[in-house]
Structure formats: C-alpha cells, structure tokens
Design a binder for these strands. Structure first.
Length: 232
DNA sequence: GTTCTAGAAC
DNA sequence: GTTCTAGAAC
C-alpha cells in the first residue's frame, strides 16, 4: 500500500512538472525540491500551471484560426472563422494572421489591414443567402474577453441559444460594440484606438430592444419580444 | 469566452 | 415553488 502511494505521488509529480516545462515558470518551479513540491496541494499546482498558457481559454482564437476545419475564408492577410458560440443566425470573426493582442496595440500602420478586414467582412455578408432579409453589423468589442484582435460580423436577428445573458446582449447592442468604420476612422485621425472610459459599465445597462428600443425586464422576455421583429 | 449554481426576484 | 441572474472558477 505504501509503495502504491509512492508511485502515485511520483506520477503526480512528473505530471505536474511536465505541464510546467511548457511554460516560462519552469525555473521557478524547479527551485523547489521534489519533496517540497509534493507538499503543495495539487489544486495550487494546477492553478500555477494552467495560468498564462497557450491552453488558457482567452487564447482560444489563436488555436481556432489555425484549424483548417474552422476556416471559412482565408487569404494572405486574414482568416475568417465562425464564432464558436454564435449570438445570431450568422456570426463570423475576421482575424489577421499577424498577432495583434488588442485594439490598444493598433497604430496607423495597421490602417490598411483593418480596411482589408472590413472588406472581407463585407464579402462574407454579400455571399450570405440571408443578406437580403437580415441586417448585419461589423465591429469590435471595446473590451474583448478573447486575445487576438477580431472583427465581429453578426446578423442583427440575435436569434441564438448561445445568447444567454445581459453581457452578451449589451456587448453587441450598446456602444460597447465599436463599428469597424469608426475604429478605422479613429486610427486614421489619431493614429491609435481609444476605448471610452466606463465602457465596461455599458454591459450592465437595462435590456433594450435594438429595433424599437423598448426595454425588456429579462432575457427570456427579450427573446420573446425579438420574435415579433424577426419571425422567419 | 463558458459553466455552474446560490440566492435574488418573482 | 420556479425562474432568472450574476459572480466564482485557483
């Protein structure tokens, strides 16, 4: 029994170390002796090991955009994928191959790239069979959860089981959603993109219909209301 | 970004 | 009692 426990311990240790090797924190971890490392609760070690890695959820787009099965369009500058959790009948993301962490990193030299992303977004809408019946918007979230700059191309029906809460709704229907054209304009005039202070507060605003501006008390009520605008 | 669920709101 | 939201997740 003692031996079994020892083998289990050893295995857990190797496992933890193997995870750490893939990260920059390897040296820090190695400074601990093997015995000391065993004293650390497994949970803590996992927490230590799973943060700031390529496997972290916020890095998911980097993985998805490289996956040919996810790509619905690509050229030498950008790739388009379907949003994994679409918030409307049509919801794509346009991503540049070039790694740009966020809007904050954008400079004047990125203007042409953003214009191209906009062009590709327009193409996606054009080729969509529903483009005649549905309105589309193209823009960026002021404070995105996912790393790597991505342009949302989303139909305005918001008819999707993935749209579940106030944050989802307000991120696409308030000024939290920054129109692509406005972002490009800002970059051209200021040489950078500034996000208005208090943008995060916009997510807490009451639920308001984007078509008739009626206020709805709950998400289910809002969804029911949207049917009156977007019956198939 | 999602999932899960405690407890608020009804 | 049920519906719904909102915050933690190590």
């Amino acid at each position: 029994e003692k031996l079994l426990r020892m083998i289990k311990c050893r295995f857990a240790g190797l496992l933890a170390r193997r995870i750490i090797i893939n990260q920059s924190s390897y040296l820090t971890y190695r400074q601990l002796s093997w015995v000391e490392a065993q004293k650390r609760p497994l949970k803590t070690r996992n927490a230590h090991g799973s943060k700031n890695t390529a496997g972290h959820w916020s890095q998911g787009l980097k993985t998805s955009m490289q996956d040919p099965k996810m790509q619905v369009y690509k050229d030498d500058k950008v790739v388009v994928i379907k949003d994994k959790y679409p918030k409307a009948r049509h919801h794509w993301l346009v991503l540049p191959w070039q790694s740009i962490t966020s809007l904050k990193a954008l400079r004047a030299e990125h203007c042409d790239l953003l214009k191209h992303m906009q062009q590709v977004a327009d193409q996606m809408v054009e080729q969509c069979p529903d483009s005649t019946s549905l309105r589309f918007r193209t823009g960026y979230h002021a404070i995105p959860s996912m790393s790597h700059v991505h342009l949302h191309v989303i139909s305005q029906d918001f008819d999707s089981p993935c749209l579940k809460n106030k944050k989802h709704w307000n991120s696409f229907t308030t000024n939290y959603f920054m129109e692509s054209h406005d972002v490009i304009q800002m970059l051209e005039t200021d040489g950078k993109v500034t996000v208005k202070e208090g943008a995060s507060e916009l997510l807490k605003l009451p639920l308001c219909c984007h078509v008739c501006h009626r206020e709805l008390p709950t998400i289910p009520a809002l969804k029911e209301h949207l049917k009156s605008h977007f019956s198939r």
